[in-house]
Simulated assay, not measured.
Amino acid sequence: MQIPHIVPTQDSALNTALTAVINNKTKPLGSLGSLEVIALQIGLIQQTTRPALMQPAIVIFAADHGVVAEGISAYPQSVTWQMVENFLSEGAAINVFARQSQCSLHIVDAGVNHDFGTRPKLIAKKVGFGTKNFIHEAAMTTEQCATALTHGIALIGGLPGNIIGFGEMGIGNTTAAAAIMQKITGLPLVECVGAGTAFDATRILLKQSVIQRAINHHDRVATPLEILATFGGFEIAMMVGAMLAAAERRMVLLIDGFIVTSALLIAARLRPEILDYCVFAHCSDEHGHRQMLTYLKAQPLLQIGLRLGEGTGAALALPLVQAAVAFMAEMATFESASVDAISPLDA
């Protein structure tokens, strides 16, 4: 499997030109805050002073996790496939928010422990019926991990647009994400483990114990792909591949919450340049996400107490990203509006 090659977006001449365009709009310097930062970033991604967003999409990757056998989730594993059915019936929060943002939504069976049969709205990329319990053995084989990455890479080729949001569904995947976070960042485990699907102090302590036992059992695991195969899920691995391929295509990557960011931790270890292409939708209330964002030196757009997953944060942030591009394209300049610009002495 070939890891996609990603070109850094830094271009000093284009940066200067984009900054001049932004500063010449009819507003005080810097007054649009994060929207100006995003406009500059997307201009650099697209290599133009007139960036445009086309056919936004959110892709939800769903899979099950063998580690749920340890009792780490408040919900039974069956909720994964039931929520996939909810997505297909357009009844979940992400369906509502994607419709509101006029964003296409794609549901991927990466490894759900359920036979859906042939479904017209479901992208069938099942690597297996859930991962193994990583307390006892690696969550997936090296071959399964490579297959999931390859499927993720291939999925991007079927999307027509230039901006993609990432979402996920998988009972137990906050445990997998926390294990990945600890191995990649080296932060204390207590900083990585949160409530997941329930505010239950006893269950949080159980999750910490389960992850610590797994880390001790797999103490020699070190490389990003080893960490992914040992502790990850099929949906996390598929997201890694999709993220890398999307950045290779110079797409804008809308990064959702805790689990999606755990996939990005792996992707960024493989190709650090991917961070140039990432817009961080929000800071989740899931414990550990803020530390992830700090580790990545990321500035999230929203902080509104979300901890649902599904790509909901990406869908809610999308209108802000679209606004950043819209003001670049449509807002008048000082000259065109006959408005006096700031004088050099006031700058």
Rank of each mutant, 00 (worst) to 15 (best):
I107V: 14
H136M: 02
E286T: 08
T312H: 01
T185C: 08
A13N: 14
F129Y: 14
V210R: 06
G117D: 07
K183S: 14
L122R: 07
P51R: 06
V59S: 06
N23M: 01
F166W: 02
P272C: 07
G33S: 11
A329M: 08
L244G: 14
I6E: 06
A69Y: 02
E335I: 04
R250A: 13
I6A: 11
C278S: 13
I123F: 10
A242G: 14
V59G: 02
A229Y: 03
H5N: 12
G91E: 06
I22R: 09
P319G: 04
T19A: 08
Q182R: 13
G43N: 05
G288Y: 01
F234P: 15
C145K: 07
A324Q: 09
A314I: 01
F61C: 10
F231W: 04
T197L: 04
L296G: 05
F87P: 13
L302E: 01
H287D: 01
V127C: 15
N162Q: 04
N95T: 06
E137T: 12
P224R: 05
L105N: 10
V190P: 00
I164H: 08
L88M: 08
H136E: 07
A245V: 02
H5M: 09
K25V: 01
D276I: 06
T48F: 00
T174R: 10
G130D: 06
G165F: 03
F334G: 02
Q10C: 14
L88H: 08
T142F: 10
I342V: 11
M140F: 10
T223W: 07
F129P: 12
A178V: 08
L88V: 08
M1F: 03
N95V: 05
F258I: 03
I274L: 11
A63T: 09
A195Y: 11
V96H: 04
Q182M: 00
I60Y: 01
F334R: 06
A176V: 03
M1I: 03
M292T: 08
M292I: 12
P4E: 01
G165E: 03
Q10Y: 13
F87Y: 09
A178L: 04
I163T: 07
T174I: 10
A323I: 08
H151C: 10
G196I: 09
L40V: 01
A74M: 05
Q46E: 11
A198C: 10
A39G: 15
A329Q: 15
A74V: 09
T9G: 14
K27Q: 04
T230S: 11
L155H: 09
T294F: 00
P76H: 07
G313M: 00
I255V: 13
G257T: 00
V221Y: 07
L88F: 03
R213Y: 00
P188Q: 12
F129L: 14
D256Y: 02
G311D: 01
L318R: 08
A52Y: 00
V79F: 00
M83Q: 12
F61W: 06
N95E: 07
G309C: 06
L316H: 00
T175H: 05
Q144P: 13
V193M: 05
A347F: 12
A326F: 00
I60Q: 02
V325R: 09
S101M: 07
S31Q: 09
G161H: 04
M239I: 14
L189S: 11
P160N: 11
P4V: 03
G43W: 00
L29H: 04
P319H: 05
V252H: 02
T223K: 11
L187S: 03
S34E: 12
A323F: 05
A154Y: 00
F116M: 12
T223L: 03
I72M: 11
